[in-house]
Amino acid sequence: MNTQPLVDVRHLKQYFPIRTGFFTTTPLKAVDDISFHVNEEETLGLVGESGCGKTTAGRTLLHLYKPTSGEIYFDGNLITEKNIKNYRKEMQIVFQDPYSSLDPRMTVADIIGEPLDIHHLYSSRSERTDRVRELMDLVGLNSEQANRYAHEFSGGQRQRIGIARALAVDPRFIVCDEPVSALDVSIQAQIINTFEDLQKKLNIAYLFIAHDLLVVRHMSNRIAVMYLGRIVETADADEVSDHPLHPYTVSLMSAVPVPDPKLARSRHRIPLEGDVPSPLNMPTGCAFRTRCRYATEKCAQERPELKEAAPGHFVACWNI
C-alpha cells in the first residue's frame, strides 16, 4: 500500500509585510509554521475563526502566494517556484463566492473550457465541446445550457460551474475554500453530495475549508483546527468533534448551534472571553494564552508543538 501522503506540508509560513510606519514594516503572520498532510482520496477539513489563516494556508500551499518559508511535497516531490507549473494541473481550487469568482461576460462553456485551453487539452473544437458537456453532466448541470452566461444561473448552479472548471484538468487534489458557505441549506446539500460523488468516482483528495463545523465534520475524514495562524489540534473528524482536547477546540465545538431543540436546551457552552489578538501582534508562547483559562507561566514563554495525545490525535498545548 502507498502510505506516502499525496500532499505534505511542512513548516509552512506566510508572512505579509504590513506598513506600520514611514520606513517600517511589520510581518503579519497569517500562517505561522504549520505542518499537515492530505492522503490520496482523503478529505482534510480545515476550521477556525475568520482571519485565522485558512484561506492563506490553502493558497500558499498552491503557490498562489509565494511561501515565506517551508516545504510543500506533492506525491513525494518538492514543489518549487520553478516546477509549480507542472503541478498546476494536479492541484486546483474552488472558491467560496460563486458570484464574484466567475466572469459574468463569459459563457459557461468558456468558463469551463478555459483551463482546457490553457493546458492544451484537446485537439479539435468538437473535442473541446464534448469535454465541456461531459464536465457539465458530471457536476449535475444541464449541458444544453453550455452557451448561457454565468449570471443566468442560481448560486448553487454557479458553484457547480466552479467545480466543473476545477475538474477540467483532472486534478488529484482540490482546495475547496468555503465552497458551500454562500448557499442555502437545501442547495448546500446538493453540492456536498456532488463533492462526495466526485471524490469516489475520480479519486480526488480535498482540503475542505469551511466555518460550518457540522458540514466539515460530515465531509471530512480528519479535521485540523487553526487558531491565529497555527494548527492547534488535528485528529479524526468525529474524534475532534466529540472529544476535543485543546481548550480552544473545546470552546469552539461547544459554540456550534445544534439543530435539535432538546439537545440545545441540555447543552452548555464554554464561552470564550475577549477577541482574537491581532496577527500583527502575536502573543508570545501559545497564541491562545490570552483567552485560555488554563494558561500558566510556561504558556507565555514557549510555543507548544503538536504532539500525539492519543493515537492519531495531535494537540498543541502544554497542559495536555
Partner: peptide
Amino acid sequence: SIPSIVGKHERLIPISGTP
C-alpha cells in the same frame, strides 16, 4: 438536508430543483 449532529456521515438528502 442538514448534516447529522452526531456525525453519521450518511448521505444527505437534498431538496431538488431551484428556489
